[in-house]
């Protein structure tokens, strides 16, 4: 799809175009401001962060040192980060291993009633997690999975699978049918067809889907706090529990928040264009 920006037209006022650009910048900066402020506060001393807002100050890494230092009895940053990375990476890998063949089936050689199948996947997203939490909690307890990383891996996989199937299907559907037929005519086996023809075309889409699945899993809090609040806790739990001291805590909280959210922001920036294209195409094709 050629991304054509509706450019200026003959007769359109250049000034109004400039004004729209300025408004876009202002809106962009406004939306970003809370994040900017968060990061700014994380480099301040507690006194500076709690005082009147200032833009210029001597930055310090003190808060980062403090929140990442481990103290006995409390969930440390290192542990939480390791748990999150473990749970998120493993569940994302499983999501992709399950979703890629499914998407291939739904797009490249559509089975009958593929729309119904796709709708079933999406419809599971209609089930609010809160509605399933009780049986999940009981099942996890009975299976001895409470407070394990495994239970989060399984559930994050289920959480992200529908969206991954949906997005990947639209990326796979972009592979021209003729290309697959051409590879058949060229004598390619199914494996070599997938490896040499399909994967090179869909790999950016696979990367974007994996990143989105990574983002949702990393940010998940509800299941983590219900099923896994003790050992193996993840970063969102760490960030809500790391700073509990009353009094001056804003700078420390900001540092913790910045650390917690940095991986997903980077992943999101990397994947933004394709991520949305995959989501949006799913609606149209």
């Amino acid at each position: 799809m050629a991304s054509s920006t509706t450019g200026p037209v003959v007769g359109e006022n250049k000034v109004s175009g400039f004004i729209f650009g300025v408004i876009a910048w202002i809106v962009g900066l406004m939306f970003f401001f809370p994040i900017f402020w968060l990061v700014l506060n994380s480099f301040k001393t507690e006194e500076a962060a709690n005082g009147d807002p200032v833009l210029f100050f001597t930055p310090t890494l003190e808060q980062y040192r403090e929140v990442t230092a481990s103290s006995t009895g409390l969930l440390s940053f290192g542990e939480a980060f390791f748990n999150s990375a473990w749970v998120v990476v493993v569940s994302t890998i499983i999501v992709m291993v399950l979703a890629i063949p499914a998407a291939y089936s739904l797009a490249i050689r559509p089975v009958e009633k593929w729309r119904d199948v796709l709708f079933f996947f999406i419809s599971t997203k209609f089930l609010p997690i809160a509605a399933a939490i009780l049986p999940l909690w009981i099942l996890a307890r009975d299976l001895g999975l409470l407070n394990t990383r495994l239970v989060l891996i399984i559930l994050y996989t289920a959480l992200n699978l529908p969206l991954a199937v949906w997005m990947l299907r639209s990326f796979f559907a972009e592979v021209p049918r003729e290309l697959i037929e051409a590879s058949q005519m060229d004598g390619a086996s199914l494996m070599s067809q997938i490896r040499s023809v399909i994967l090179p075309i869909v790999s950016p889409g696979i990367a974007a889907t994996a990143l989105l699945s990574f983002i949702f899993a990393w940010n998940e809090f509800f299941l983590a706090v219900q099923l896994n609040p003790v050992d193996g806790s993840t970063v969102p739990i760490w960030v809500t529990t790391a700073v509990t001291t009353r009094g001056l805590f804003l700078a420390k909280l900001s540092a913790a928040s910045t650390l917690a959210t940095l991986p997903v922001v980077l992943a999101g920036w990397a994947a933004q264009k394709r991520m949305i294209r995959g989501l949006a195409l799913g609606a149209i094709k």
């Binding site: 003729e178 290309l179 037929e181 051409a182 005519m185 040499s196 023809v197 090179p200």
Partner: peptide
């Protein structure tokens, strides 16, 4: 061997 309308070249 087949030549397709849109050529179907492997991009």
């Amino acid at each position: 061997a087949m030549v397709f309308q849109n050529y179907a070249l492997y991009p």
